[in-house]
Amino acid sequence: MLTISSAPQGNSLVIALAGRIDAANAKNLEQYCLEQIDGGAIRLIFDFTAVNYISSAALRVFLVIAKRLNSLQGSVKLCALNTLLRDVFDISGFAKLFVITATVQEAL
């Protein structure tokens, strides 16, 4: 199960994720994020503090979001990835595509 919540901070929207991001809920995450972008949010910070699993389907979602925001001169930052999540991003090569920080404050 995945829980998604968001709150504006400065000129960014911080999206806090909790639980598993897998094939069963990746589409919901994508739809949620695209709705936020369509609503004007072009600087997204994803807080992974409470995420314990991420699948390849979820990685694709972050790629879609990054491409959409790049076309709008926006940005995506990822923060608070645990060791397992960081390994997934490193091994897949996705760590090179995103700014990854230790904390939300650092991302801001």
Rank of each mutant, 00 (worst) to 15 (best):
S5A: 13
V14R: 10
R43D: 14
V76N: 02
I100S: 04
L63C: 09
S56P: 03
V51S: 05
L29P: 04
S71Y: 05
G40T: 00
T3R: 13
V51F: 10
A66C: 07
N11S: 15
A41P: 01
E106A: 11
D22R: 00
D38F: 02
S56R: 08
L69S: 07
D90P: 01
L72M: 13
A7H: 15
I54W: 05
Q105S: 13
D87S: 13
A95Q: 06
Q31I: 12
L44D: 06
D38I: 04
L85T: 01
P8N: 13
R43V: 01
L29T: 06
R60E: 02
C33K: 06
A80P: 03
R20C: 14
C33S: 15
S6F: 11
D87E: 15
A95F: 08
A95W: 01
S92H: 07
N52D: 15
K27D: 15
V76I: 11
A18C: 10
A107N: 01
M1H: 13
I45C: 09
I37E: 07
L59S: 02
D90E: 15
L84K: 11
S92F: 06
Q36T: 06
V88L: 03
A41N: 10
V88R: 05
N70F: 07
S75N: 15
C33Q: 08
F98L: 02
T49E: 11
Y53V: 00
Q31K: 12
T49S: 14
N82G: 07
A107H: 00
L29S: 02
G10A: 08
L2Q: 01
F94K: 03
I42N: 13
G39Q: 14
G39T: 05
V104Y: 06
T49F: 11
V104P: 03
N52M: 10
S75P: 03
G10K: 07
N70L: 12
D22S: 08
S56W: 03
E106Y: 02
A57E: 11
D90S: 13
F62A: 09
G74D: 09
I45Q: 03
F89W: 04
Q31P: 00
T49P: 02
A16C: 05
T103H: 00
L44N: 05
D47A: 02
T49N: 12
T83F: 02
V104R: 01
V51H: 02
T101D: 05
D87F: 04
I21K: 00
I54Q: 06
F46R: 02
L85P: 11
R60H: 13
G19F: 02
I37T: 11
V76Q: 02
I37L: 12
M1G: 14
V64Y: 06
M1R: 07
Q9Y: 12
L69V: 07
A102D: 15
A95I: 08
R60D: 07
N82H: 11
V88P: 05
K27G: 10
L34H: 06
G10R: 09
A58N: 10
L29M: 04
A57H: 09
L63S: 06
A50W: 08
A66W: 09
T49L: 14
L44Q: 08
P8G: 08
Q73K: 14
S12T: 13
V14A: 08
Q105D: 14
G39D: 14
A102W: 03
L13V: 13
K77S: 13
I37D: 04
L13M: 15
R60C: 01
I100E: 03
S55K: 00
K67F: 02
L69P: 11
G93A: 09
S12L: 04
G93K: 09
G39R: 06
L78Y: 00
